[in-house]
Design a protein around this nucleic acid. Structure first.
Ligand SMILES: [Mn+2]
Ligand SMILES: [Mn+2]
Length: 823
DNA sequence: GCTTCTA
DNA sequence: TAGAAGCAACGCACA
DNA sequence: TGTGCG
């Protein structure tokens, strides 16, 4: 079928629908339109042979309970229709609102041409909402509508995922929202608790799309930007959403693809549609989206950043002028170095667990390559020599109600900019200096503090003025009263949860609803996790099922994830429950969803790189629980510094069953030995039979160094209590009731993490302890999936300091020397 | 628990 | 088509 | 260089 029918039915002067165009590269995309015309229906369009083969699907896609639905074959549409959404005016063909319900790639499972001919086409849709196998089958001739009636049949009923409708909390679309602002950080840092992102150099903007399709794009100051950027008018076509609020940065890109505010400037001082259109052609703007605050009836702002980002990636289809911000998961320092090399302005570091708050926050940090910030223009000096219009701008920032003088900037102006500044400043002239403590006023024209300029500079002098300032441009998206001196804060500790008011402290999640069936699909952070065999007994004596294991990990995730992030895992799987034969697995199995993070590690045996799973989010944790990983077994080091452990582990195992009380005694001995080096150890039950004591380390020690130090401490313990502590790896030669194992401090070795469930009777959990709990009477069985959540709610994460209390071994050795026994 | 190989 | 196999593998310490 | 250990 050619596009002739399509063209014949439409008047392109009257409908916003696209006229057939060049077509572009051939592909195999599909779109499912929701078409609110005389009857609400859906239109499925499959890209093939330079056009879209189209079916009207009156009752929508087939669903599990109704897997066969009518589809009416209609005229081919041009490929430009893939992106189309809008209102077709009354009187036109197909009048009504056309919206994109899903789209993506389709994959024919047999030959398309012959399938169309024969009347049977089987294919998969890989959309953002739908991922499943379907057939289109032509019904027998002779019925009404000739041979236009087909059936669309769903083959795998697991295919559809409406779960995004329950993320966040129900709320009406807010009329306005305040943007979350970042705090300046002193320098780059590494922390698995943070997401690192390109810092775009442009104009911050919140985009709001309502159910009627109208788009508003607001600057930080709240002024409407949409008319300035007609190329962003199609933003709705980039989102699988009917209503949304997104946060991002409008930028102009240089030839290397780097955003530069100076380029965007050309777009900011225009009036008149024609001028805007021609500037848009010369300097196109792009909107880089980095956050999603609202989606189709759900307010997402209280969700952690990780989850918001996951949902954003799921509903945003980056193309054209709307893009997704670039992030970097692992090392902030490495990313910063790369950013500097590539001429970026800097990087952002955002706490993964932070909610979106409409104010300046330390949860978002910016690390700048060059120092640059906004200043209020408070006056200008007369030109000298050949310079015209003005010499320098006098700059200030607000401290409370006072405008504080910060120096003058006299370079960075083009001739045209001098002219423009002269025109803008003249009417603002004022007899009174705006500064609270004005500098020498000779030759200065004071102005009302209304203009805001962006200025780059080398540093602040001790007197509080700018060294080597360079003018970058005016910006009208920042209110003068919001201009303050940006104060640097120190890089946060590696711990995501320390130095943090309790408002954002983790809390136990509400339980998942109990399973009605044996399987279920759950959407978490925009990822769909398939949960299976939910009613399989995993602890038959206690009546715990696999669902109970999954539910436990779901609820404990806010506490556990900070301890897992960045660490490769060794999987130990018990498909038939805690008493069954487990098997180990390192390489991510083929069925691992593609959204699960991995790190490539060289495998000696395979002589190749092997992808190990790194658990960064709750969805991954539930995937692991579903494949019967009862405990989580992370490395002692993290992605980015895999050769360098961030803690030492002392593993205290009772040599004989029931020897836990000896472990308690040995742990107290160990604590004292560590204290003699000035070190703090953090105890937890292993959950199985013994205790673990962690000593968090400063970055940079090798596994060998960590182990060597652990050995020194272990030997001191043994020397003091031959009768209590054995260091003997050989089981048969242990001559004391506790084996103090330091050999786990090696690359690739793992220890059951804190909050891990153990494959033991009663489903015990590895539980952090306060030292005063490490005392006679302590029982590891007291902490289990049935009992630990209350404790967590009450006491918080007693292990959070293992992520921040990094200790220096050289210092420890110096301090310990005086306590060492004489040889 | 799930994929892939083998009979 | 049912059933079985596979799914770590490396560093360390001591002999 | 091999074996036990985790
Ligand atoms: Mn239609
Ligand atoms: Mn142990």
């Amino acid at each position: 079928m050619s596009l002739r029918d399509y063209e014949r039915k439409r008047d392109f002067a009257a409908t916003p629908e696209p006229a057939p165009g060049a077509g572009g590269e051939p592909g195999s995309r599909f779109v499912l339109h929701r078409h609110d015309a005389s009857h609400l229906h859906y239109d499925l369009r499959l890209e093939h042979g330079g056009a879209l083969i189209s079916w009207a699907v009156p009752k929508g896609l087939p669903v599990p309970h109704d897997p066969r639905k009518l589809a009416v074959h209609v005229e081919d549409h041009p490929v430009e229709y893939l992106d189309f959404r809008g209102e077709i005016p009354k009187g036109q063909y197909g009048a009504g609102i056309m919206d994109i319900w899903d789209r993506g790639a389709w994959e024919p499972l047999d030959d398309v041409a012959s399938g169309l001919e024969k009347g049977k086409l089987t294919f998969r849709l890989h959309g953002a909402r739908v991922d499943g196998e379907f057939s289109l089958v032509r019904m027998k001739k002779g019925e009404r509508q000739g041979d236009r009636e087909w059936l669309i049949i769903l083959h795998d009923p697991a295919g559809l995922n409406p779960e995004l409708a329950t993320v966040g909390r129900a709320a009406a679309l807010p009329a306005t929202v305040e943007p979350m602002l970042a705090t300046l950080a002193a320098g780059p840092f590494d922390s698995p608790g943070y997401l690192f992102e390109v810092k775009y150099d442009g104009m911050r903007a919140l985009a709001r799309l309502d159910a009627g399709g109208s788009l508003s794009i607001r600057s930080r100051k709240g002024t409407e930007q949409a008319p300035r950027f007609p190329e962003l008018g199609g933003l709705a076509g980039n989102f699988l959403a009917r209503e949304l609020i997104a946060d991002g940065e409008i930028v102009a890109l240089d030839e290397r693809g780097v955003s530069r505010f100076q380029l965007l400037q050309e777009r900011l001082n225009l009036t008149g549609e024609a001028a805007i259109r021609s500037a848009a052609a010369r300097v196109p703007a792009y909107y880089f989206v980095f956050d999603l605050l609202y989606l189709d009836g759900r307010d997402l702002r209280d969700l952690p950043l990780d989850e918001r980002r996951g949902i954003l990636e799921r509903v945003l289809l980056p193309h054209g002028h709307v893009r997704l911000s670039e992030i970097f998961e692992a090392s902030g320092t490495a990313f910063f170095a790369a950013a500097r090399e590539n001429g970026l302005e800097g990087i952002m570091a955002k706490r993964r667990d932070s909610p979106y708050r409409g104010r300046r926050s330390r949860d978002w940090l910016k690390v700048k390559v060059t120092r640059e910030q906004e200043f209020v223009v408070g006056g200008y000096t007369a030109p000298a020599g050949t310079r015209r219009h003005l010499g320098a701008l006098l700059l200030g920032f607000y401290e409370g109600d006072d405008l504080v003088f910060a120096g003058s900037v006299g370079s960075g102006f083009s001739e045209a900019e001098l002219v423009r500044l002269g025109e803008l400043l003249e009417p603002l002239a004022s007899a009174e200096p705006p500064f609270a403590a004005p500098p020498d006023g000779r030759g200065v024209t004071w102005v009302k503090p209304e203009l805001v300029a962006s200025v780059k500079f080398a540093e602040w002098t001790r007197e509080g003025s700018l060294r080597q300032p360079v003018y970058l441009g005016l910006r009208d998206d920042v209110a003068p009263r919001d201009v303050v001196r940006e104060q640097e804060v120190d890089a946060p500790p590696a711990d995501a949860a320390k130095d943090r008011p309790p408002s954002d402290a983790p809390s136990v999640k509400a339980p998942l609803p109990p399973p009605g069936k044996d399987s279920r699909r759950l959407t978490l952070g925009g990822h769909v996790v398939s949960l299976t065999h939910l009613r399989k007994p995993f602890w038959p004596e206690e009546g715990y099922t696999k669902f109970d294991l999954i539910d436990y990990y779901y609820r404990v995730a806010p506490f556990l994830l900070p301890h897992l992030r960045g660490r490769p895992l060794t999987l130990k799987r018990y498909p038939d429950g805690y008493g069954s034969e487990p098997f180990f697995q390192k390489e991510a199995p083929t069925e691992t969803p593609d959204w699960v993070n991995r790190v490539a590690v060289h495998s000696e045996a395979k002589g190749a790189q092997v992808d190990l799973i790194v658990c960064e989010d709750a969805a991954t944790l539930l995937f692991l629980a579903n494949i019967a990983c009862i405990s989580q077994n992370p490395w002692l080091s993290r992605v980015g510094s895999l050769e360098s452990p961030d803690h030492i582990v002392f593993d205290l195992d009772p040599v004989e069953d029931g020897g836990f009380a000896y472990c308690v005694e040995a742990a107290l001995l160990l604590r004292d030995k560590l204290a003699s080096f000035g070190l703090r150890g953090y105890p937890k039950t292993s959950g199985a039979s013994g205790l673990h004591v962690y000593v968090p380390l400063k970055p940079g020690y090798s596994y060998g160094q960590a182990r060597q130090f652990a050995r020194v401490v272990a030997i001191l313990c043994r020397e003091e209590r031959h009768d209590l502590v054995s260091l003997e790896p050989s089981v048969s030669r242990r001559d004391a009731p506790v084996y103090l194992d330091i050999l786990q401090n090696a690359r690739g070795k793992t220890v059951a993490s804190v909050y891990s469930v153990r494959a033991r009777a009663g489903a015990p959990v590895s539980t952090p302890l306060a030292w005063d709990e490490v005392a006679p009477g302590l029982s590891p069985a007291a902490f289990s999936i049935g009992s630990i959540l209350g404790r967590l709610e009450e006491r918080g994460d007693l292990f959070s300091e293992t992520l921040s209390d990094s200790q220096d071994l050289l210092l420890a050795l110096e301090r310990g020397e005086k306590h060492l026994p004489r040889r």
